[in-house]
Computed example of a mutant assay.
Amino acid sequence: MVRIKKGFLIILTSFSLLLLNISTPVSAKESKTKQTVITSKDGSVILTKIQKDVWVHTTYTEIDGFKIAANGLVLNNSKGIVLVDATWDDQLAKQLLEMIQKEFQKPVKLAIITHHKYDRIGGIQTLMDQKIKTVSTPEIAKMAKEFNYPMPEPSLDSVASTLKVGNLKIKTYFPGEAHTSDNITVWLPKYNLLFGDMIFALEQQNSGIIDEANMEAWPNTMKNLMYVYNDAKIVVPGHKTWGDFSLLQHTLDIVRKHEN
């Protein structure tokens, strides 16, 4: 983690407090898919099936002596695997790719990076070393360069893009500034599933790391998400336990509290 210098050393303690209570992820109530969980030998990488062809990858790193979890997505489709976010670092990304290959026996065809901070982009070099096409918006790519990461291909539109990989449609969206200035969401219309790192799990009771957050804009960003994705059935936050639409209102309530 040495290369993450900008704003990193001063936020370790608050990051630890934010994510100290780590619980085993569970699927949303709406999911009728029997949950399957695959864990690496050292427990640092977990794959959890929450819908047909939709898995959450959860990876752990240690900060200030605490194990901290971050979520991303693994999407299985007729053409291969789509990965959303690249884990904390290259070693975890390598483990994740090995687990994906063993479980699905398909190549990872595409990776989407949802913002520039290291819980999303830390393993990008491993993806690139394995010739996996890795994409983001121009804003995320620019910020990645500023933070000394390889730049993902800036091929996603700055506001909204629709990708079709095999039989799977994926939509990316910039709802406004929140946790970072460049954060985007991923929407799977087939499953009414929304993923985003500006969304909080129910057990998170504070705004967390706000070193790059736009606290003035964040409430409006959440209102925008609630309007655009009012039919969301499964909501996967960047950290901790996923759930349903109530996570959006919960996040709005938390960031509003911060304003007071």
Score class of each variant (00 low, 15 high):
M99G: 04
K41E: 15
M215Y: 00
D85C: 12
W242V: 05
I132P: 02
D64Y: 01
W88L: 07
V84S: 01
V236L: 07
I38Q: 00
M198C: 15
T24G: 00
A213H: 01
S136F: 08
N224T: 12
D89F: 09
L247A: 05
V2R: 12
T180N: 05
M1C: 09
N183K: 10
G7D: 13
I38E: 14
K32H: 02
N183E: 15
I234T: 15
T221V: 00
P25M: 08
D157G: 02
V236M: 07
W218P: 01
A70K: 04
D211W: 03
K94W: 04
L252H: 11
N220T: 13
L20I: 08
T59P: 03
Q105V: 07
N77F: 08
T134F: 10
T134S: 13
L163I: 15
S207P: 03
L163W: 05
H57A: 11
V159Q: 06
K41W: 02
H57M: 08
N224P: 10
S246G: 04
D64N: 13
V159Y: 09
L92I: 03
Q130W: 07
V159H: 06
E98F: 05
S158H: 00
V37M: 10
A93W: 02
T36L: 07
A217E: 09
F200W: 06
T241V: 15
N148W: 13
A111S: 15
V228L: 06
G7R: 08
L92T: 04
P150V: 02
M222T: 08
H250I: 07
S27M: 06
E203M: 04
E139G: 02
T58Y: 03
W218L: 12
Q95E: 15
L83M: 01
L225H: 00
M143Y: 00
T36A: 08
L156H: 00
K106C: 06
S27A: 15
I210M: 08
S158D: 03
G176I: 00
F174K: 07
K5A: 07
S23P: 03
P150D: 11
R120Q: 13
H57Q: 14
K52S: 09
F200V: 10
I209F: 04
F245E: 13
G196V: 06
L96I: 10
A93K: 04
D231A: 11
K29Q: 03
T251Q: 04
I124V: 14
F104Y: 13
N192R: 12
H250V: 05
I199R: 02
G196S: 06
G122M: 06
K52F: 09
M222K: 05
E103S: 06
T24E: 14
N167S: 10
L17T: 06
I63P: 02
W187C: 08
K6M: 13
G7T: 05
W55Y: 15
T87K: 11
M1S: 14
T221A: 14
V165D: 09
N230I: 03
N21D: 12
P237L: 03
L252Y: 15
T126L: 03
H239A: 12
F104R: 00
K133T: 03
L194W: 11
N76A: 11
T33A: 14
L97T: 05
N21P: 00
H57Y: 13
T24Q: 12
R3V: 14
S14C: 01
V255K: 02
G166D: 03
V37L: 10
I46E: 09
E259I: 08
K106H: 00
Y149K: 10
Q249A: 10
R120H: 14
I170S: 02
G243W: 13
